[in-house]
Design a protein around this nucleic acid. Structure first.
Length: 665
RNA sequence: GCGCCUGUAGCUCAGUUGGAUAGAGCGGCAGACUUCGAAUCUGUAGGUCGGGGGUUCGAGUCCCUCCAGGCGCGCCA
């Protein structure tokens, strides 16, 4: 609702300026006045126009403001300061429009923008050991992004890249085959034996032991090289072992993420990128267009390299700068392709620019009915049409910004300018441990470490917090809280509520920080259920729904549709003049605007903050207005409708954050 | 050496892309439960937005410089 008014305002402003001054306005800058009494939307573009037209901004604002209305939902305009135009909304109109547009129960609408398919790649964990908190941040960010795009109307496909032929898998194979002298059958048994330790946890420790061996006996690194070669070539017992291990662990990662309400459409495996010769097509393209060059001499002799210069023509460069030209090796002198080369091929495939395609088979089935598919060489005949995106987001931590930029530059060098613009590196910072937390986990810190705001974890040393351990701890803590409140004696229901609360606490914790903020993980913060947390948001919706439920119980024949008919426009307007009632209405109306803002800024924390502000406004309202005890039936009707609007908006926002609402808490 | 990021209240962080009086949570202090269940709410204290210079009607936000910290720059993935 609010978003529509903003859009209409932009259009009317641009039109008015065009008619009066014959000037095109490309971007109309909107903001928010300091308080609702001064209006709900402000236009600041007159300051920019003033420069262009050499006239005082206030004078321009007067002329434009006179021509702005009518705008649906806007009652009047006012001028403020040196040249602000403020719009005052028609509160009763906004309220009643909102009642018609906001469905009674939150649902994600079906895709409406046909031909606009958006790919979201996230999670992409090496399939060689259990997932940790850093992986959770990636997955939660990516999943939330996918939900937001879907809400906007995009057709969204979620991909999870599985590097099943890489060095990290090879290291675990080295562990099983050489350190533990295990056979393939032994490994299979370890995977299938549910009475033993979890397989991904077992590999977590084994991986650390392999690195101890590498350090103690550097000559053992040759085992890694041999194993990696065997896996890449795809035959022999070591390759088979790698396949069995990576498949088992990929499946466990899907289970872990499922606990956090995260699902995937497709697992793209590096093995298929190799077996189906994706690189050959990418290589041909890049060679033909001159995006890569063969180095005849110098330190990179025998390699195919890509120039990373700023695009300046060769004849403009001095000899010295040509000498030190920044290049990235794409194909090594031994003919093998580097990591980034494979990534370029994968990304070309995402946009259907490669001229090759995968085959697929079903891999994992979710309770809701969705299926995750996996790439293969010989697949099932009736698989969905994967890939072929118009836009693609890749959720990858910020340390890989350089390599993601190489991929983007490769697109530009190939002439795919539009696709390069539609390629989004959704970069986020890592998750470390707070020094206190690190010491609790048994890490030894020196004085310097203790003074840092966070400590980096090392998978090679087996350090870090495993995702499922954290989830389990959260569920236990939540269960204590649930039981302390004695809301139900049914243990199964208690556990179900505790799970929802735990997931909510975790997801909100990972989403409330902006992407560029390094999260220093600490149990105290992550286990918090009060203040700016997921459980606070859930509790707010539960409170709202309790009011509606109790009302229903006391008046079984009273329907929400009747509430609206009890209320005249003037009565609604009079009551919405009250600042707290209006603030809540306004926030509820801003859901779509908050989503749009979140997508444009690529910052999920924006939506998290919006949800929190909405919850705060509702709790404030809750405290000041005892809805069920309201004696005036007309006033009560408005309050009830407001409870419904606010809880729907908040429920919807929580849905986008991947947070469920329990029936009680 | 080159490139990117960060520095805002005691702590952890927001700050709507240059707008009006810099906000929130936690922690501190003082209050509100026989209530639509307090996982809540109200009030209060707390700021040289790292330092300096600049751009302009206007700077936490843009530019320059310095200081402090982080990350990246491999024929690893």
């Amino acid at each position: 609702m609010f978003l529509e008014i903003q859009q209409a305002t932009r259009e009317k402003f641009a039109k008015a300026v065009q008619e009066i001054f014959h000037v095109e306005v490309s971007e109309v800058a909107l903001g928010f006045p300091p308080s609702p009494e001064m209006g709900e939307i402000s236009i600041t573009s007159c300051f920019d126009l003033a420069k262009q037209l050499r006239q005082p901004p206030r004078k321009l604002a007067e002329q434009v403001a006179a021509r702005l209305l009518p705008i649906e939902g806007v009652e009047r305009v006012s001028l403020a300061g040196a040249g602000y135009i403020n719009l005052h909304l028609d509160r009763a109109a906004v309220f009643s429009k909102l009642l018609r547009t906001r469905a009674t129960s939150p649902k994600t609408p079906a895709p409406t923008r046909t031909g606009r398919k958006t790919l979201v790649e996230h999670t992409s964990i090496n399939p060689n050991k259990a997932a940790h908190i850093g992986h959770l941040r990636n997955a939660v960010l990516g999943d939330t992004l996918a939900r937001l795009l879907r809400f906007r109307g995009d057709e969204v496909e979620v991909q999870n890249y599985i590097d099943n032929t890489g060095v990290q898998v090879a290291d675990v194979v080295v562990g099983f085959a050489h350190l533990e002298k295990k056979s393939l059958a032994d490994v299979r048994k370890l995977i299938e034996d549910s009475s033993g330790p979890r397989f991904d946890y077992y590999c977590w420790d084994l991986y650390a032991r392999v690195f101890q061996r590498y350090e103690a006996q550097p000559e053992s690194l040759s085992l890694r090289a041999e194993t990696l070669k065997a896996i890449e070539e795809g035959h022999g017992i070591l390759a088979e072992m790698a396949e069995v291990i990576s498949t088992a662990i990929a499946r466990q990662h899907l289970e872990t993420m499922q606990r956090l309400n995260i699902e995937y459409d497709l697992l793209v495996q590096e093995s298929e990128i190799l077996r189906l010769n994706f690189w050959q097509s990418a290589f041909d393209l890049m060679r033909q267009t001159g995006a890569i060059q063969f180095e005849e001499s110098g330190k990179n002799r025998g390699c195919w390299v890509m120039a990373l210069g700023d695009g300046a023509r060769a004849d403009e460069k001095s000899e010295a700068s040509a000498e030190n030209e920044d290049v990235k090796i794409i194909v090594r002198s031994n003919g093998t392709v580097t990591y980034v080369g494979k990534d370029i091929a994968y990304h070309l495939w995402k946009f259907a620019l490669l001229g090759r395609d995968f085959q697929y088979h079903r891999f994992y089935r979710y309770p809701g009915g969705r299926e995750a598919w996996r790439t293969t060489v010989q697949g099932e005949s009736e698989s969905p049409a994967f890939g072929r995106g118009r836009e693609a987001y890749a959720v990858i931590d910020t340390r890989q910004s350089y390599l993601q930029d190489v991929v983007r530059r490769a697109f530009l060098a190939l002439g795919y300018t539009e696709q390069a613009q539609n390629l989004h590196h959704f970069a986020y910072e890592v998750v470390g441990l707070s020094p206190r937390c690190a010491e609790e986990m048994g890490l030894e810190l020196d004085e310097e470490d203790r003074s840092r705001s966070y400590v980096e974890v090392s998978g090679r040393k087996g350090q870090g917090i495993k995702a499922d351990d954290l989830i389990q701890t959260l569920i236990e803590r939540a269960l204590e809280e649930v039981q302390a409140r004695e809301m139900t004696s049914d243990l199964e229901e208690q556990q179900s509520i505790a799970r929802m609360i735990a997931v909510s606490a975790l997801r909100y914790f990972l989403l409330k920080y902006t992407r560029r903020t390094i999260i220093a993980f600490d149990f105290k913060d992550a286990l918090a259920f009060e203040g700016e947390t997921g459980p606070y948001l859930q509790y707010t919706v539960v409170r709202a729904l309790n009011i509606l439920r109790k009302r229903q119980e006391a008046h079984p024949d009273s329907k929400p549709e009747q509430w609206e008919t009890m209320l005249s426009r003037d009565q609604a307007a009079a009551m919405l003049a009250s600042p707290d009632l209006w603030e809540l209405t306004l926030l509820a109306a801003q859901l779509e605007a908050a989503v749009e803002q979140t997508i444009v800024s690529e910052e999920p924390a924006t939506l998290a903050k919006y949800a929190f502000r909405l919850a705060q406004a509702f709790n404030n309202f809750y405290h000041h207005h005892p809805v069920l005890h309201e004696p005036d039936p007309v006033r009560q009707a408005l309050l009830l409708l407001l409870v419904q609007l606010a809880s729907n908006a908040l429920h919807q926002a929580l849905d986008l954050l991947g947070i469920q609402v329990p029936s009680r808490m």
